Amino acid sequence: MSGTKELDAPREIVWDVINDPEQMASLMPGVEEFEVQDDKHWRAKVKVPLGLGGLKMTIDFEKLEERPLEFASLNAKGKGVGALMNMTTSFTLSEDGDKTSMDWSADVKIAGPVGSMGQRVLQPIVNQQVGGVLDALEAKVAEKKAAAQG
Rank of each mutant, 00 (worst) to 15 (best):
S2T: 15
G3T: 07
K5L: 13
K5E: 13
E6H: 14
L7G: 03
P10L: 06
E12D: 12
E12C: 06
E12V: 04
I13G: 01
I13L: 01
V14N: 03
I18Q: 01
I18E: 00
P21D: 03
P21Q: 09
Q23T: 08
Q23P: 05
M24I: 15
A25R: 10
L27E: 04
M28N: 14
M28P: 00
P29Y: 08
G30D: 01
V31F: 05
V31G: 01
E32I: 11
E32L: 12
E33Q: 12
E33Y: 08
V36Q: 11
V36R: 10
V36L: 06
Q37S: 13
Q37K: 14
Q37F: 04
Q37N: 12
D38V: 00
D38F: 02
K40R: 10
K40N: 15
H41R: 04
R43M: 11
R43C: 02
K45Q: 06
V46P: 00
K47S: 13
V48F: 11
V48I: 15
P49R: 10
G51C: 08
L52Y: 09
G53D: 09
G53Y: 09
M57Q: 09
M57C: 11
I59M: 11
D60I: 03
D60T: 13
F61C: 14
E62V: 14
L64P: 04
E65M: 15
E66C: 08
E66A: 15
F71C: 05
F71W: 07
F71I: 09
F71S: 04
S73V: 10
S73G: 09
L74M: 13
N75W: 03
K77C: 03
G78C: 02
G78N: 02
G80C: 02
V81G: 06
V81T: 10
V81F: 11
G82C: 02
M85S: 11
N86W: 07
T89H: 12
T89K: 12
T89D: 02
T92H: 13
L93S: 05
E95I: 11
W104F: 11
D107A: 14
V108F: 03
V108I: 15
K109Q: 13
A111R: 15
A111L: 07
P113C: 00
G115K: 02
S116F: 05
M117P: 05
Q119V: 13
L122P: 06
V126N: 02
V126G: 06
V126Q: 12
V126W: 06
Q128L: 12
Q129R: 15
G132P: 05
G132T: 14
G132I: 12
G132M: 13
G132Q: 14
D135N: 15
A136Q: 02
A139G: 06
K140L: 07
K144S: 02
K145L: 11
A146V: 06
A146K: 04
G150K: 08
